[in-house]
Simulated scan of single mutants.
Amino acid sequence: MSYVLPTLTKKQEVDSFIRSTIDKVLVLRFGRSSDSACLLLDDVLAKTAREVSKFATVALVDTDSEEIQVYVRYFDIALIPSTIFFFNAHHMKMDSGTADHTKWVGAFQQKQDFIDVVEAIFRGAMKGKMIVNCPLPPERIPKYQLLYKDV
């Protein structure tokens, strides 16, 4: 059973999603549908969107869109795919042992990894935290500086 994820191409659409997603984690995947790593991640996101729907909303953001560049610059998205998390319009950060706590760079290796990360962010957000620890073991966290250079 496939679950179609909304694709946002305008700044106003992203702003609206951020503002209107209340008491759920908003998962925004920044990337392009022509990129193989993005397609891998999109597959995981689409397959898990229904499972996490009680506590998360998932949307794709097209980094090729001119209007989206303001977010690409703001979140310093140099590598794709990059996934950014929000809760009640607040940017949620995650310490995954990498230098960048603002976003998840790369694809999730399996569906359960994505579910675990979103659950950890949701639980932390419900406790008022703005940063949570990554629940995944280090070997399942992408080493993006080597693998995900944008060509």
Rank of each mutant, 00 (worst) to 15 (best):
A107H: 11
S53D: 07
F86R: 04
D100E: 12
L41M: 15
R32G: 09
Q145H: 11
Y144N: 07
F114H: 15
T21N: 09
N133D: 08
E13Y: 01
A56Y: 12
V25P: 04
K111N: 15
D95I: 01
L79D: 03
I121F: 10
W104Q: 00
E66R: 10
E66D: 14
I131Y: 01
A78N: 10
G97E: 05
V151E: 05
Q12E: 15
I80P: 09
G31A: 08
L28D: 07
F87K: 07
G128T: 02
E13W: 00
Q145P: 00
Q12I: 12
H90W: 08
I68T: 03
S53I: 02
D64W: 11
F17I: 00
K93E: 15
A125D: 01
K127E: 14
M1L: 09
R50C: 13
Q110H: 01
E67I: 05
D23E: 14
P6C: 04
F87M: 08
N88M: 12
D113A: 09
F85C: 08
V70H: 05
F108A: 07
I84M: 09
H90V: 15
T9E: 12
I22A: 09
S53Y: 01
T83C: 14
Y3R: 06
E51V: 13
P142R: 05
S16R: 09
A49E: 00
T9D: 08
S33W: 03
